[in-house]
Amino acid sequence: MKQKCKFLIVDDNEVDQMVTRTLLKKKLAVEDVSQVRTGSEALEWLKVSGDTIGECLIILLDIQMPEMDGFEFLEAYEEVDESVKHKTTIIMLSSTLDPTDIRRATDHKYVKSLFSKPVPTGLLDELMGAQA
């Protein structure tokens, strides 16, 4: 298991942020969790904190957010520094039922997987285990 991975939660819903953070902590014992509210804040975070990532970063990305939504973030993510992208895994976390959104997410080259909220810690653990 990749215990040393850092997490970044990108979600505008404060309740969902808290739920995800607490579930990661209680079920997977993940302590190093950052959180931002929009896609643009996430980009800013990557720019500022990109060097502090350490071994790896997992971004849990919501789709529907004001300002810059999940897909707009993914477009802008293209420009992010290769050294950061290399260490980063993006997992989309949403309650969407829109087949267009689901297809766009699962087909996207930067998206490892699409999970439905609340974060399925079991699946996430498996995914990280498979990567390790």
Partner: peptide, 11 residues
């Protein structure tokens, strides 16, 4: 969205 929040909170 509120239902998924609720599910998380229940968990």
């Amino acid at each position: 969205a509120p239902i998924t929040s609720l599910k998380g909170l229940i968990e």
